[in-house]
């Protein structure tokens, strides 16, 4: 842990509250407790002027980044000029940050050793969040797929008088023959059944 981490003032600007809190928790655990999270950019110039941050993290996808950068460069809202990253020559750190989806702005003159651990922490937390979000998305689509397959099985059982196992085997065989996913076959089947169904069933 760096010496006197608490003296650095850090601002996290992220409209995604969940991600912001994931980063915040990580930084707090590492001993950085002079933190402010801003979810809404309304009135942000005043807030930043009040806080006078040393380091600012903004998610890369934030549509207000051009506005924020302009604000940092004009230096009216901020007492000291703020540049992106601590050291332009540190290409690996910059790439890691952009890959992770975070941009870091550091007040002029701050030493690399002081900022590096904070930057690394933010990057790892952003990565962890993306992983989490991806897993959640996968779990959600997995559930969706299972529902689709169940419905398709039901349609086959009703229209072709098949057992559940036979209906599933038919879906799987069709998928293998067409080199597609079972869920895709199920989806086409449901769509087709919907088109062919009498109006009162819609």
């Amino acid at each position: 842990m760096p010496a006197q981490p608490t003296t650095l003032s850090i601002v996290i600007i992220d409209e995604n509250r969940l991600r912001a809190s994931v980063i915040e928790v990580g930084l707090r655990e590492a001993g950085y407790d002079n933190l402010t999270t801003i979810n809404d950019v309304t009135g942000i110039a005043r807030r930043i002027a009040d806080i006078e941050p040393d380091v600012i993290f903004i998610d890369l996808e934030n549509p207000n980044r051009d506005m924020l950068e302009n604000m940092f460069q004009l230096s009216r809202a901020v007492q000291r000029p703020i540049a992106m990253f601590v050291d332009r020559s540190d290409q690996a750190a910059i790439e890691a940050a952009v890959d992770a989806g975070v941009s870091a702005y550091v007040v002029d003159g701050l030493k690399r050793e002081r900022v590096k651990p904070i930057l690394d922490m933010a990057i790892s937390r952003f990565n962890a969040f993306s992983r989490m979000a991806r897993e959640l998305e996968e779990a959600r689509s997995e559930l969706e797929n299972r529902k689709l397959i169940d419905r398709a099985k039901g349609i086959l059982m009703a229209t072709r008088s098949l057992s559940e196992a036979e209906a599933y085997a038919l879906l799987r065989k069709t998928a293998m023959n067409q080199n597609r996913k079972i869920s895709e076959i199920a989806e086409s089947l449901i769509t087709a059944a919907g088109l062919l169904a009498p109006p009162e069933d819609n």
């Binding site: 996808e61 980044r65 051009d66 950068e69 910059i94 952009v98 890959d99 941009s103």
Partner: peptide, 15 residues
């Protein structure tokens, strides 16, 4: 992309 800054950064790192 959502900002010109993001386009610039992603050009800089080769995306």
């Amino acid at each position: 992309e959502t900002s010109w800054a993001s386009i610039r950064d992603r050009m800089a790192v080769g995306h």
